[in-house]
Amino acid sequence: MSTTYVTRTVAIQRAIIEPLTGRVADYDIEAIADRIIEHTEHGYVCPVEPDEFWQIASEHDLSANAQAVAEFEQAIEHQPAWAK
């Protein structure tokens, strides 16, 4: 059974920000919240299991995306002139 939170803000704090403590800036918190927080007639819940949470969080890891872009840009810089 999921915990019910009175507000979306509290649900985000408890279900997303607390598990990501120390790395919050590396994640798109709103995008994660849109995927895992549900509004019910009683409040807000996060009905996902921990494995699903971490999978979704990894999909919205901004540091991973930034690293991938940097690697791509570096690869392009090192291509021969004819390939550009």
Rank of each mutant, 00 (worst) to 15 (best):
V10E: 14
I16S: 03
T3F: 12
E77L: 15
H42Y: 08
E77A: 14
V48G: 00
E77Y: 15
T40I: 06
E41F: 02
Q55I: 10
Q74P: 00
S58G: 13
K84A: 09
A70E: 15
V45N: 08
V24W: 06
I37Q: 06
H42E: 10
V69T: 08
A11S: 04
W54G: 00
I16G: 04
A75Y: 15
E77P: 10
Q67N: 12
A31V: 15
Y27T: 01
A64K: 03
V6N: 12
H42N: 06
A64I: 11
D61W: 02
I29K: 03
T3E: 12
T9N: 12
Y27S: 02
I56K: 02
A11R: 01
R8T: 11
R35S: 07
E41A: 07
A15S: 13
E30T: 04
H78Y: 10
D28M: 05
L62V: 07
D61T: 04
I17C: 03
V24F: 05
I12W: 00
T4N: 07
E52N: 09
P47G: 01
A15W: 01
T9P: 00
I37A: 09
D28I: 03
I32V: 11
A33Y: 07
I32R: 00
Q55N: 08
S58F: 09
Y27L: 02
I76K: 11
L62T: 06
A31D: 12
L62W: 09
P19V: 10
I36Q: 01
I56N: 01
T21Y: 07
A11E: 02
V6I: 11
P80K: 14
I36C: 05
E30Y: 09
K84H: 10
D61A: 00
A68F: 12
W54I: 04
A31S: 15
Q67Y: 13
E71Q: 11
V24T: 15
T3L: 09
A15Q: 02
K84E: 01
S58Y: 07
A57V: 09
A31T: 15
E73R: 14
A66H: 12
W54T: 01
T21L: 02
A81K: 10
V45Y: 04
Q79N: 03
T9M: 10
E38C: 11
E49A: 06
K84F: 10
A81Q: 07
I12K: 00
H60T: 03
E38R: 13
D51L: 11
A75V: 06
Y5E: 08
F72K: 02
T3G: 05
S58W: 03
V69I: 14
I56G: 02
E77I: 13
T3Y: 14
P50A: 07
D28F: 03
A70D: 14
A15E: 06
N65S: 01
A66Q: 11
T7I: 06
R35W: 08
I56V: 15
Q67L: 14
T40C: 08
V45S: 08
E52H: 13
A75W: 14
Y5Q: 03
Y44M: 05
Y5T: 08
V45K: 08
P80F: 14
I56H: 02
S63I: 13
I56P: 01
